[in-house]
Write a protein that binds this DNA or RNA. Structure first.
Lengths: 362, 362
DNA sequence: ATTCATACTGTGTGCGTACACGGAAAAAAG
DNA sequence: CTTTTTTCCGTGTACGCACACAGTATGAAT
């Protein structure tokens, strides 16, 4: 395989045996300082790059990763990180990586806490954790436990600052709000009203929703040629269509010139379904995520734009980054913002196809 | 590594030696029909999956790939597939893949032909080719030569139908035109004119530009609430700013209500640079590709939308697909359309970041 | 002077596969 | 029946690395 430098080459050049070079490489001690220095110099000089193929073959232990994500039952969005995780697993399982996916109730912090504890206690060995820190408090506890036990971890979808995590993979919430504003702006005229709508339980961590709102407001604060009135509302009972309809009617009554709604999560379809066609004609809707009900409404122009949060990618890259860390021993970028894909009818197909097809199959 | 089935396990179960199992796996003959059948049954029964790691380590020959792409000198776009190819190489070089990049003059079919011949004759062994078939005729000749010599090949950026290629990776040109129309449509009013502008030498294959035009027209043919007049122009001397300016002034004179320009390749910046600020205020521009001059003009709102053709991805996936074919011996999807990314000021940063950062480093 | 501990270094085996080589058995030729 | 050829199959080695283990050298303690 080419003229690659092997450990043996280093050894020959340094006038010692491969075993010693190996000790230097893995910093396993029992090497005299001079020899170590010499070996390091030779490695530098010859540009030694370990052969991962041989390394993985020799080092045949398994690395166990546990992923803790929301139970996708009844929520189409959370099925997608799962798909990404499974796709990544297929790519790296040859390297001795094992992934178990655990689920928690996305509306119940106690469930998260319980599962996290269970994972920490019952999984052995536990080499890494991938999780979605949607509950701020409970996630911090998990992060602390990881730090204490020196378990590398990756966060996806929601970020927590100063977490000590290996990395975060997901969107930049603030900028995501800016983009949402920009997209709504296409359909807004001077003096009209835009509504920021959080269809979520209050209990879930609102941090990234707040960031989206800040970004949204930031955009319009910089628009000079027209003035847009901005209103924010939270509504918890999104499961009940009639209540949602009543709620929306109230908003329309209070804001007669309401002509744009920014739904901060994947539930834009609920809004579109609850509004009358006549209102929909006038009101532009920007939402998140390529889930089926959103797609259906996008195709008949009842939702105007969808911002793709790349949930499949999040899961995929989460695992791949752990792979890079655990097996490849590469540096991992701590903050990995995914693109803010703008999805309209005309390009939706290709994003869907990409999610389904492989990227890299190893 | 888990409880994986090895060749030795198959051998034991079938009551023969690993060598024979290996012969069956690689169909290398010298195995009696009964034994072969027996081995196949056992493999099926135990669900044998070859260990790629060990396979690659043992099979230490190199696979030589040559990439034939346009010389990026003086054209910022073509630098990007090159980056993608290099990124992919970094990911798979451990598996014994070697890539050499050859360049041709993107305005000179003879140069393509000459380089192609040279590659076929002088590279030995030549295990695969990745190329951009921008010259229809000459590319067909290369495809024929590949077919004759049974050299697997991948096309990126431009597609040729019925090519016998392993796969095509790039955009769906027609749909790309549809999207371009949709984006321009945001800024167009009833009765206004949209210009489809090909800033290219006539000599280059116009097939994918034609497709873009068809898509563009197709979109507006389906718009019912307003009527948009569509004009198409080709202009070869885009290198000369004064001539381009004069040309554009002529268009403005001929089409007083011209308020949208769809530039079908990466040269939108040339249009924006050649127009007066007063005209730019009114005229919306949609172009392609995240190259620096386009980005600068996007940021100051002189270009409104950029469609990303994902050139880095094209190169990256091109190599990765050959890797999948050559090393992994996986099936490869023959038609791999990349997403049509809509890029505006608000999300441009994240696309750029993605291109620069790794995706998978192996 | 011998033993013993310590600090360091070399050797060997295994990981799962590919493939060359050689040997045995069966079939064909003499 | 013997020799040669063919067909089939087992053994061994290499791939590059990790790691256990077996050394060797040095100096201190007895």
């Amino acid at each position: 395989m080419d003229t690659r430098i092997r450990i043996k080459d280093i050894a020959d050049r340094a006038g010692i045996s491969p075993g010693t070079v190996d000790r230097v490489i893995h910093d396993r001690g029992n090497v005299s300082p001079e020899t170590k220095k010499k070996v390091m110099e030779v490695m530098e000089e010859l540009g030694y790059k370990p052969n991962i193929i041989a390394r993985t073959l020799a080092n045949n232990k398994i690395q166990r990763i546990v992923a803790l994500i929301p139970d996708p039952t009844g929520d189409l969005y959370w099925d997608q990180p799962k798909m990404g995780i499974e796709k990544a697993l297929r790519a790296v399982q040859h390297y001795g990586i094992e992934v178990r996916i655990a689920y928690f109730d996305r509306f119940d912090p106690a469930s998260f806490q319980q599962k996290a504890t269970q994972i920490l206690e019952e999984t052995s060995p536990l080499d890494a954790i991938l999780f979605t820190p949607i509950f701020q408090q409970e996630s911090r506890e998990l992060l602390d436990a990881c730090k204490e036990r020196e378990i590398p971890n990756v966060m996806i979808n929601t970020n927590i600052e100063n977490s000590g995590s290996l990395c975060y993979i997901g969107q930049d919430s603030f900028q995501s709000g800016v983009l949402g504003a920009r997209l709504l702006d296409f359909g807004l005229h001077d003096g009209e009203t835009a509504l920021i709508l959080n269809l979520d339980k209050r209990i879930t961590n609102a941090k990234h929703l707040q960031d989206k709102e800040s970004g949204f407001r930031d955009y319009f604060s910089k628009v000079t040629n027209k003035h847009i009135h901005i209103v924010r509302k939270d509504f918890e009972e999104f499961g009940d269509r009639d209540k949602l309809r009543a709620f929306l009617q109230r908003q329309l009554a209070e804001n007669p010139r309401l002509s744009g709604i920014f739904v901060t999560n994947s539930r834009a379809y609920k809004v579109a379904e609850a509004l009358d066609d006549a209102d929909l004609e006038r009101i532009k809707i920007v939402g998140y995520d390529l889930i089926q009900p959103n797609l259906d409404l996008l195709k008949c122009n009842k939702i105007n734009f969808i911002i793709n949060q790349n949930p499949v990618q999040q899961g995929y890259l989460g695992i791949m980054n752990l792979f890079n860390h655990l097996i490849m021993k590469h540096e991992v970028a701590p903050l990995q913002y995914l693109p803010l894909d703008i999805v309209v009818v005309e390009n939706v197909e290709y994003y869907l196809k990409r999610e389904l097809e492989f990227q890299i199959v190893l």
